[in-house]
């Protein structure tokens, strides 16, 4: 491991998007009280893939890489919907996943929010209505916010999440 630390001390901090930090400071100030009441200082997200191509998941995984390091904003992904404030729903909603996605949503404690991620779950993408899936999440869930893109890049996801916090 000595090689790792030698390398680590030579390289700088890679984390970018300092403007987000400023924005977040601002938002934090504004929403300090409501975040404290609603999220106890941090926002827990459960990712549910209901029929995506995996690009949206790959971009969510990228959020944890050293360039974006989402954790530092107090936003993190959790293992169970029961631990989550927000469900991030990606992909069209296949017939085979519909009831499982609804289950996950029901398992969440209130207050809870659902954000659709990417063009698929709102029918904006290339996947239009078809027998094997539903292309409009609004008919099956109460959708609180939408982050557009195919797939939305990590920057737009962070921006989207901050915009979502502002709406609460």
């Amino acid at each position: 491991m000595i090689k790792f630390w030698q390398r680590r001390f030579k390289s700088n901090v890679l984390t970018e998007n300092l403007e987000f930090d400023d924005q977040l400071k601002h938002i934090k100030k504004e929403l300090k009280e409501s975040i404290h009441i609603k999220f106890a200082g941090s926002l827990a997200i459960r990712m549910v893939d209901s029929g995506s191509c995996n690009a949206c998941e790959a971009e969510c995984n990228a959020l944890d890489n050293p360039y974006y390091d989402l954790h530092r904003l107090g936003i993190y992904f959790v293992a169970s919907p029961r631990h989550a404030d927000v469900i991030l729903l990606s992909g069209v909603i296949t017939l085979n996943m519909l009831s499982h996605a609804q289950d996950a949503y029901e398992q969440m404690g209130s207050p809870k929010w659902l954000i659709t991620l990417g063009d698929c779950p709102v029918g904006d993408g290339v996947f239009k209505e078809h027998f094997a899936y539903k292309a409009n999440a609004k008919e099956y869930f109460k959708v609180d916010f939408h982050i557009a893109g195919c797939p939305p890049n990590p920057e737009s996801i962070i921006r989207g999440l901050l915009d979502f916090i502002k709406t609460i």
Binding site: G91, T94, L95, N96, M97, H130, A132, Y133
Partner: peptide
Amino acid sequence: YKYRGIEKLLENKTLDEAKAI
């Protein structure tokens, strides 16, 4: 679980239409 019926979805599409899918 993620069965989107892609094979059927692409039937009767032109090659250009199929590309984005």
